[in-house]
Amino acid sequence: MTEASSSQHRQAWDLIPWIANGTASESEQRSVDEHLHDCADCREELEFQRRLQRAMARDSAPEADATAGWARLRERLDADEVPSVLAQLAPRRLRRAERTWMPWVVAVMLLQGVGLGVLGTALWSRTSANPTMATAAVGAYRTLSAPQPPLPPATVRAVFAPTMTLAELHAALAGAHLQIVFGPSDADVWSLGPAGDSTRAATEAALRALRTSSNVRFAEPIGGAP
C-alpha cells in the first residue's frame, strides 16, 4: 500500500460510522465510495457498523410519562417565580421613586436635621433643670439607634403565587399574625415567624390562615417549631 493510498484508507476508515448513520457530507460519501470499490477491509467494516447500528436502534426505553414529569416541572416553576418577582419588584420601584423624589427627600432630611438640633438643645436645657424628666423621656421614645427587639425564630416556610402583590402579601401576613424572618432563600422560600403568640396552636392557626389564601402555593411548619 503506497503512502497516498494508506492515508486514503485511514480517512475512509474514520468516516465509516458517519457513512453508516447517513450524516456524512456528499463529498465525504463520494470519497469513501471510491475507496470502498478497491478495499475489502473497509467494505467489511462498513457492513459491521451497519449491523451494529441496527442492533442498537432497537427501542428498549422505559415508559415515558410526560404528563407526570411536566407536572413536577410546573410545580418547580411555580415555586421559583413568586418570590423572585417580589424581590425584583421592590428595588425597581425604589429606584424609580428615588429618581422622582430624591430632591424632596434630601430637603426633608435637612429640615429634620435642623428640627432635631433645636429639639435636642431645648431638651438638654430642660433636663438639666429637672433630672426626673430625662427618665420619662427615655421611656416614652424609641430612636433608630436604640437596640431592635430580636426577631422570633422562624416557625413557617412558605412560597407565594406569582401574581401576588406586596399589599396582598402584607394582608396575608397580618391575617396569619406572621412576620418575615428571612427570605427569599436560594430556592425562593420565605421563612416566617410569629408576630405575636408563638405557641404550637398559634402556628397551626397561622398555617390555616395562610392556606386559605389562593396566593399561597405552599406553607408548612418548620421542623421543631412550636
Binding site: P17, N21, Q53, M56
Partner: peptide, 11 residues
Amino acid sequence: LELAYFVGHSC
C-alpha cells in the same frame, strides 16, 4: 456511539 447510532447525530 449512542448519539451516532441510536439518536443519529453527525460528528
